[in-house]
Nucleic acid binder design. Structure first.
Lengths: 152, 152
DNA sequence: CATTAACTCTACCTAGATAGTAGGGATATT
DNA sequence: AATATCCCTACTATCTAGGTAGAGTTAATG
């Protein structure tokens, strides 16, 4: 299960990404719309700002807008930001690789092989679907198995 | 990431499943082979026995064997047993369904839609690959998208 | 029939994560 | 100057992961 924090982040991002050009939205408004605890949401929005995804305007009539275009922000990136590596095993993570303490041979490890397959399948989707895709309701494009579109 | 407990369970199961017909293996032997804390492993094996997957023989020269054939035990089933629902959102779980507190319409929820796709992809693999498949090193069979083979 | 090697069960412990709450401080608009 | 907004840090309660510990039960074997 993904954390509440990550889920709130997605809700907030989709609200910001759906904004008409030139408009902003306040943390209070996002919190109200989605019944998210306001102070908790503020922390999340701050994280998103520090990550360079959102931009903020302070003071009266301030609020948030996207800094990066919504079609460059993938679900995988956000999930990693809040919940850490997507990989089911440390030995399968590129960003946080660590061998299993007891593993003798990764190449022969059946667990790694099986979970590697499951991980590939879900990673291809999460790293290639963006906020813009989600808002457009676009169906997933058929995958060739060689995507690198948004994978850093 | 999957828990250590689940990972240990997979290692233990693969050791038991790989046993020649008629042989048993002790918890101590499994623990030694994979450098798993012995008492911790005992709890895990007990869970697997209570779940009806392993069978035990007590007393001197006791040990464990498979109760269910290894080609009927899927990775998904074991993972659910130790780490709970595979679904990334409660509203996507069949076994532990719960609506999101704040969700107004599941049908329109972009988060649910996107994670649903990722979940489907990995669930199809985890629920259709068995211990026997893993030991055989068999490549995944092409999936049609309509599998129900081992999904209870 | 005592010994011993195994499984069985229950209780307990600690560090860290999750999901917030709280209270102010900084800043820009009006 | 007032006010609405974002910014930052500290704190807390609860739960979970990952074990440790110890005693009890059972069955083979010499």
């Amino acid at each position: 299960m993904i954390s509440n924090k990550a889920k709130y982040a997605f809700r907030a991002l989709l609200s910001v990404a759906a904004l008409p050009e030139g408009e902003t939205i306040t943390s209070a408004e996002i919190a109200r719309r989605h019944a998210i605890p306001h102070k908790f949401l503020e922390q999340i929005l701050l994280d998103l700002k520090k990550a360079g995804i959102l931009e903020s305007r302070r003071g009266k009539s301030g609020g948030y807008v996207m800094l990066r275009p919504s079609d460059t922000v993938s679900f995988g990136e956000i999930l990693r930001l809040f919940d850490g590596p997507l990989a089911p095993l440390p030995c399968l993570s590129r960003q946080a690789y660590r061998p299993c303490d007891e593993c003798e041979s990764e190449a022969l490890c059946e667990i790694r092989r099986e979970f590697g397959r499951a991980y590939d399948a879900s990673r291809r989707i999460l790293d290639n679907r963006t906020l813009a895709d989600a808002l457009a309701g676009a169906p997933a494009t058929p995958l060739t198995g060689k995507e690198e579109r948004l994978v850093g």
